[in-house]
Amino acid sequence: MKLFRIAAFSSSLLLGAVLALTGAGQAQASDSAAALDYVALGDSYSSGLGAGGYDGASGDCMRSSKAYPRLWAAAHTPSSFAFTACSGARTGDVTAGQLAPLSSATDLVSITIGGNDAGFADVMITCFFDSGSSCISRINQARSYVDSTLPGNLDSVYSAIRTKAPSARVVVIGYPRFYKLGQSCTGLSENARSAINGAADYLNTAIARRAAHHGYDFADVVPAFTGHEICSGSDWLHSVNWSNIEASYHPTASGQSGGYLPVFSAQV
């Protein structure tokens, strides 16, 4: 009986220590996040177009209260938070108009960029309204741009971020695949959907390569969106939305909270 009591007491001490350490770790992580100066840059996938709840003061940038940067900031209350991501932004727009909040005090930066440079919107319009051959031709044109021109544009953005925020951790976030394949689904052919998904992978690979070159983390959202693509029946992406055409092929509020937010959070 005495041995049993000693063992039970020891187990209790061990459990208490584990709980205390876990609590301390959580508190330390929370304190660490609260001490961060965070700046969110990028295009519509960061501004939250398609998620609703837009800030009227953001105008055409369509910054949403349901976008992953705002959700992360609300959950972690960083010491400062600047949200300059803007719908429709290209790499040149980031360097010209989004970097003002960055400084030597900036600790954390997130960014999605490159899709508009590669002509994402035009690819989707061509594929939806034109023939299958026109769709494939436009995708091949975009892939050629990704090979020839996009790397230099990304380098310009990434270098500008490092110049203004030399100590910041930079998380570069990619784009999802858009279609669930092998499903009965109205709209584009299976061949076109597969080519669009392949183009998204191609773009992500190019972005990840340039991010790594600059020592930045690349966050891949494809696994998080798997099972939630268009035609999946549990979509986290808008298909063509005639009542709000700009939101087409953008994450819903669920795509921001269930896809982008946890992937970003895992990097911080």
Rank of each mutant, 00 (worst) to 15 (best):
V240Q: 07
F9G: 10
L188W: 06
S46P: 11
G88C: 01
Y249D: 04
S11N: 10
S248M: 02
A105W: 12
T95R: 09
G119F: 06
S156C: 11
L181C: 01
G119C: 11
V221T: 05
C231W: 00
G182E: 03
A105I: 08
G48N: 00
A7S: 09
S104E: 02
D117A: 09
G227C: 09
S133D: 10
H213T: 14
N241E: 09
N204L: 00
L188M: 13
A17R: 12
A100E: 03
Q28V: 05
G187W: 04
F264C: 03
N244F: 06
I207H: 11
P69I: 03
M1N: 13
C61N: 10
S133L: 10
G198T: 07
A224N: 02
A34L: 06
G115M: 02
S239H: 13
S137D: 14
G92M: 13
G97C: 14
V157T: 00
G132T: 04
S131L: 08
D220Q: 08
A168G: 05
N153D: 07
G23C: 12
R209A: 15
T226H: 14
S194H: 06
G119T: 08
F264M: 07
L14R: 11
A212E: 15
S184I: 04
L41P: 03
P176I: 02
F178V: 01
A200H: 00
N241K: 12
H238V: 00
F83G: 01
G174P: 02
A27T: 10
A67N: 13
L181V: 00
H76C: 05
S159L: 05
A160N: 05
L71D: 03
L21P: 02
L154E: 09
A57W: 07
D201N: 12
S104Q: 08
D122R: 13
A200L: 09
A24M: 15
G23T: 12
A35S: 00
A67M: 07
L154N: 13
Y249R: 10
H228E: 01
V263F: 12
M62L: 14
A192I: 10
Q28R: 01
F81M: 01
Q98Y: 07
S79G: 12
N204V: 06
M1L: 14
A35T: 01
Q256V: 06
C127I: 07
A33S: 08
T163N: 05
Y179W: 03
N153K: 15
A118F: 06
W72H: 14
A247E: 05
I6V: 14
A85L: 13
